[in-house]
Design a binder for these strands. Structure first.
Lengths: 217, 217
DNA sequence: TACAGTAAAATTGTTGAACGATATTGACAG
DNA sequence: CTGTCAATATCGTTCAACAATTTTACTGTA
């Protein structure tokens, strides 16, 4: 019986909480995270907090300098290029070899429709997160647990970069219809066409993000 | 002046040490790792050891049960299939899109030659690790830091499975010449042919590993 | 003997404090 | 203004403690 686990351990919960603040932009890139301050803030011990830090460091969200402390990772053009290179490799391949009746396809469709509704309401935050759901579903087509976990990680890292940019409409809105077209191809069994179109999408998106990024630098 | 960094922090070094023992087979799958025993063994505090454990858990090498402790991950057929699926996706793509004069090609050649020498001396352990080097170099062709890190992780996990098997000669020796042929294609610029050949390699290797694994079950 | 229930022991989860090592800050002399 | 050196703050690691939980040992009973 036991009251349900309260969802397991402390460190992973802390990590999740911090991750949320990171992609929400509450913690800004380059900012230093003091062990003492944060542990007091969360009412946990320094030790527990450090365990959470390790997890986030391994995910590339935090960055550690010996004897100086933890810092919020600062996205760079190099990291954006790296991430998009991986996305092209993984997502396009997943799509090209996909089974058109895979369960993840339903999630892709749901994400497209949710994004369209959100666009009507100008809820750009929602458009963005539905876009992420769409692409996570693409990766899911490959039916690999480890690949899903890896993708979730670089997606979180990418969101850190998005957080620096200030125009979510520009970032996601133009791609809703492109997503829809990709989905059409997939559902019709034209997986290669879908993959080709996705490659266009990703290249274009990368260019947009890099351009926005360079305007800030 | 500080004695040289001895390469940074304690926890990562511990993790590296334990990782070594895992792929060397000293720690066997399913085995429980006592915090008290290991921390005494390494002469470090329980806290430091736990930090190392977190890292390895995230890599899939250890597995954690609340209030019961850390266990060495037990490879399953599912995990082997998952890993080979990823290898096919990543390695083949990296090869297909490779630049034939990429620096990693030199490492591939070195690995092939070292493996041939090792085969002559029937040093099967060396044959195996050179094989791993060869494939890591293939991934390196894609020029992605994050992809390299991810591959290193699943490679370590795969070695855990290899550790269960008892015939390293069967596992690696047959593939040396296949590796060499792949390299020939790559160096000649026939990247697609190289990729196709690698796909054959991986499918065959997966079948061998799964068969050996099922004989143990 | 077999077995259920309970008490005792061991292990993990988390905390708090301590101390050396390193980095940052600020004062001071030149 | 610059370089040196002490003072301060923070990190890295360890140790000791206690609550929560699991495992083990033991007991009494059928």
């Amino acid at each position: 019986m036991a009251e349900q686990d309260t969802i397991s351990a402390l460190a992973p919960r802390l990590a999740e909480e911090i991750r949320g603040r990171l992609i929400a932009g509450e913690l800004k890139p380059g900012q230093r995270l003091s062990e003492a301050a944060l542990s007091a803030d969360f009412s946990v011990s320094r030790n527990s907090l450090r365990e959470a830090f390790r997890l986030l460091t391994k995910e590339g969200l935090l960055h550690h300098e010996p004897n100086r402390g933890m810092f919020v990772a600062t996205p760079s053009m190099a990291s954006i290029i790296d991430i998009y290179r991986i996305r092209r490799m993984i997502e396009c391949q997943a799509l090209a070899k996909a089974y058109p009746h895979h369960p993840a396809v339903a999630r892709m469709r749901a994400a497209v429709e949710a994004a369209r509704i959100a666009r009507g309401e100008k809820a750009w935050g929602m458009v963005g997160s539905q876009n992420m759901v769409f692409h996570a579903a693409i990766v899911d087509l490959a039916d690999s647990q480890r690949l899903n976990a890896f993708y979730a990680q670089i997606a979180a890292e990418l969101r850190l970069s998005f957080g620096l940019l200030d125009d979510p409409e520009l970032l996601h809105a133009p791609y809703i219809d492109l997503n829809a077209a990709i989905l059409e191809h997939l559902e019709a069994g034209r997986t290669q066409a879908a993959a080709d179109m996705l490659e266009v999408y990703l290249t274009q998106s990368e260019r947009t993000v890099l351009a926005a990024f360079s305007r800030i630098g």
